[in-house]
Every structure is written in C-alpha cells, then in structure tokens.
C-alpha cells in the first residue's frame, strides 16, 4: 500500500471540517475560487490566507502533510512569480543587468499572483483532503441535479466519477503487474532519453488499456445483472443532510470573502 500523498488526496481523520455536508464544502470552495479573482488588494489576500490557515488547523490534517499535498503545484506558482518579476516593466527599477531589469511593480504583481494561485490551490486541496471521494461525488450529483431539467446527465456524471475513483488503485496494481511481467522478458524501463522511454512504455500501456476496456465491459454487465438502470427513481444508501452548521460554514465563507473583496 502506497503512503505517498499527492494533490487531491483524501486524508481520513475525524474533524469538524470532515463532518460537514459535502455540498456545503463544495459550494464554499466554489464561491471562494470565484471570489478570489475579485480580491485585488494584498490585505484582502491576507485575510483569505488567515482564514485558510485557520481551516487547515481545524481540519486536523498535519500542516506538513498539507504542504506536501501542495507540492505538485509549487512549480506553477514559482513559474508565475518568476515571469511576472522578470517581464513586468512597472514602477521603480530595483535591479538592472544588461537586458535584465527587475521593477518594483513586477515584484509586487508576481507575489500577488503567486499568492492568489497558492490560495486557490489550498482551498481545493482542503476540499479534497477533508471529503471522501464518494461523498464528493454524491455532493456533486446533488448540486448538479437541478441541471437534469436541462437534460444534463448529473447522475451519470457522478457515477462516472465514482467509478473512475474506484478504479485508480486497481489500475495502478495492474500496471505494476504488467511492468514486472515485461521486465521478466528483458524490458528495461530506466534507460535512454525521453523518446526511447515513451517507446518502452508501449508494452505496458497497450495491455493496460486492453485490460481497462475488458474491466469496463465486465463492470457494465455486473451492474446490469444487478438491475442498475441509471438515476431514475434511484434511492441512496447515504442520505445527505444539510444542517445548520453547514449553512453557517457557507455564510462564514461568503462573509470572509466579501470582507476580502472590500478591503
């Protein structure tokens, strides 16, 4: 069993955030993600940052683990800051060397944009770290269900998400097995440059894809033989309940955001 943590991974502990209705968390996150684009002052970003740090504390996800969840996007943040600092020509010149010029406005803008991306990603990571994948899918289905009137297949989309999440570990295991089988036939996956690396993965990707299609067929048959026929009239094993605390959480998010936009 892998203990590696990556972005979007669920961290199973008991906390007030984990206990919230997934719909409240999805809505809060969505509001926050959209609202962040209207925050245009450093003080506003600071306010949101304080709120996010507080939420991480409440979530009982160890801070170091949480930072590790963010690691995959650190590169994008760094790249954004780097380009802003390098190519923006606003404000006082802080440093000049040949064609290289660093301006005060560039540094400010770079840090601001970097901070915004970091907060966007942190909010999303907080949602996935505190919400089990199945609860997330259930919540999304429920939120999307008004769109059913517009013929949007909300149930089907949620079912697809659930199945995809369920099969990640299975496919991972399968890929390990195939890799070993090909290694036993002399395949060497560590050698050569990027092009020859792509070539050496073909003996893994093809059987993996063939296997995934076979599995999909089998799953479809198994679902049909158990009487599955889509979302129509289907009841839930786990009923979602929107409680007072969920409303409070949503309202608090909106309040913090409004404050940040006004600041």
């Amino acid at each position: 069993m892998s203990v590696a943590r990556s972005f979007g991974q669920f961290y199973p502990v008991a906390s007030p955030l984990h206990a919230l209705d997934p719909r409240a968390k999805i809505l809060s996150t969505a509001v926050l993600l959209l609202g962040l684009f209207f925050v245009d002052s450093a003080a506003g970003l600071g306010l949101v940052a304080v709120a996010v740090v507080a939420l991480v504390a409440v979530s009982r996800v160890p801070p170091l683990t949480f930072l590790r969840l963010l690691r995959p996007v650190a590169f994008i943040v760094a790249l954004t800051v780097f380009f802003q600092v390098l190519f923006s020509r606003e404000g006082e010149t802080l440093f000049a060397w040949g064609i290289l010029e660093i301006h005060e406005g560039g540094v400010r803008l770079g840090l601001f944009l970097g901070g915004r991306i970091l907060l966007l990603v942190s909010a999303a990571a907080l949602l996935t770290a505190t919400t089990a994948p199945l609860a997330l899918a259930d919540g999304l289905e429920d939120l999307l269900s008004p769109l059913k009137k517009l013929r949007f297949p909300a149930h089907e989309v949620a079912m697809m998400m659930t199945i995809a999440l369920r099969f990640i570990p299975t496919l991972y295991e399968e890929s390990q097995k195939i890799t070993k089988a090909q290694a036993a036939r002399g395949a060497d996956f560590a050698e050569g440059g990027p092009l020859s690396r792509i070539r050496t993965t073909i003996p893994i990707l093809i059987p993996l894809t063939v296997g995934a299609f076979r599995r999909a067929d089998e799953l479809a048959e198994a679902m049909e033989s158990r009487g599955y026929r889509g979302g129509e009239g289907r009841t839930r094993y786990r009923e979602l309940r929107f409680r007072q605390r969920d409303a409070i959480a949503l309202a608090a998010t909106a309040l913090v955001l409004a404050g940040a936009i006004l600041l």
Partner: peptide
C-alpha cells in the same frame, strides 16, 4: 532474467504486440 525465465500468473495480461510473432520476438529482440 534471460537465464531464469519467469512466467507470471495470467501471463496473457501482458500481451501487447500487433501479431503473435512480434510478441514472442519481444524478448529475443531485447
């Protein structure tokens, strides 16, 4: 790995080439 040939359980799950001939030729080619 050439001297000790290992056939896994359900080895057919690792077939990948367009023809049987090409698939069997994979190891000697390597």
């Amino acid at each position: 790995r050439r001297r000790v040939g290992l056939v896994f359980q359900f080895p057919e799950a690792a077939l990948f080439a367009p023809t049987v001939w090409e698939d069997v030729a994979f190891a000697p080619r390597r």
